[in-house]
């Protein structure tokens, strides 16, 4: 077995229950607030922090620079990469750049369609899909890129990167088999960990985990912090593969406004606590409410 390339990989391999966080870079150059939040609430509480890549196709500062800023502050980043905006030349080039900056964890995603974002006129790229991106990363690690010379031999790299490669899956969708097959393909293409889409129903998640018992990579259950009952209802209507049970919506609705963060952390923490025995970690998506992370961990009975 090769040595872990990141603290995140090391923790998973050691069998720890691993918690990761997430930040979204701002629209504009003012990165200080989000980096400050990460330093205050995520550092020391989570093992690694995902930096989203032009999330929901809303234009903003890039993921790579966010990762670098975290690294400079002693926080291990997970570099999210979507295939929506860059072709294979740019993706591979950015992977090399990221490695040079010291970034080791990569999460390969297809990415929401440009139609969902704030530049619907943009040309969607999707030169490769998430499976292709994982193949590309695996190739780079083996010292070759996706191209070939005149004789058809793969192009060799001068200096080879290494990464801890992840992917995503949607466990709570109505027809789950095509998702599972795609997950198998991602693992075959080189994925070493999974961070799931938001889960609010431990029973469905348990079934899902049984269905992917043959997939031998660690799974971090995705937890999206609810900010209000309205948000939960919105997700049930509009967000694919997300189903917030009525009981949870009711708890949010009953919470007085000033207690919402508390209740929301309670709900998230309880979900983590309940699903802890089923998987290898949790990925907390706090959508800017980073200050709830310590509370979530407490309710989940996890010591940082």
């Amino acid at each position: 077995m090769t040595l872990p390339v990141s603290r995140f990989q090391e923790a998973l391999e050691a069998g720890e229950f691993v918690v990761t966080g997430e930040i979204g870079p701002p629209k504009g150059t003012n990165v200080e607030p989000v980096i400050h939040e990460a330093e205050t609430y995520l550092k020391g509480n989570v093992v690694a922090v995902n930096v989203t890549d032009i999330q929901t196709a809303v234009m903003r500062t890039g993921s790579m620079v966010g990762c670098k800023l975290l690294l400079d502050r002693g926080i291990e980043p997970v570099f999210q990469m979507v295939t929506r905006d860059r072709n294979r030349l740019a993706l591979q080039s950015d992977l090399l750049s990221a490695h040079i900056l010291g970034i080791r964890n990569v999460l390969a995603l297809t990415g929401d369609h440009v139609a969902m974002g704030d530049h619907p006129q943009a040309k969607p790229v999707y030169d490769v899909d998430s499976v292709g991106l994982l193949q590309a990363i695996t190739g780079l690690e083996a010292g070759t890129d996706m191209g070939a010379d005149m004789k058809g031999n793969p192009n060799e790299l001068d200096g080879v990167p290494t990464f801890f490669k992840g992917c995503c899956v949607t466990p709570c969708t109505e027809v789950v088999e095509p998702q599972i097959i795609k997950l198998e393909k991602k693992v075959e293409a080189g994925a070493q960990f999974v961070q799931t889409q938001a889960v609010y129903d431990p029973a469905t998640f348990e079934t899902f985990m049984k269905n992917i018992d043959h997939v031998k990579i660690p799974v971090l259950v995705g937890i999206v912090v609810l900010k209000s009952a309205g948000m939960a209802k919105y997700m049930n209507r509009g967000v694919p593969g997300v189903q917030v049970p009525d009981a949870i919506i009711q708890r949010m609705a009953d919470a007085p406004k000033e207690d919402r963060k508390k209740v929301s952390a309670e709900i998230a923490g309880e979900l983590v606590r309940e699903m802890k025995p089923m998987c290898q970690g949790a990925h907390l998506m706090t959508l800017g409410w980073d200050d709830v992370v310590p509370d979530i961990l407490e309710h989940a009975e996890i010591k940082p």
Partner: peptide, 21 residues
């Protein structure tokens, strides 16, 4: 497929419909 994917469904599929519409 709105993203011309070649390895299967993305996470955006919802009740059999595409995330785009």
């Amino acid at each position: 497929c709105s993203k011309s994917l070649i390895n299967g469904t993305c996470g955006g599929t919802n009740d059999g419909k595409c995330e785009v519409d």
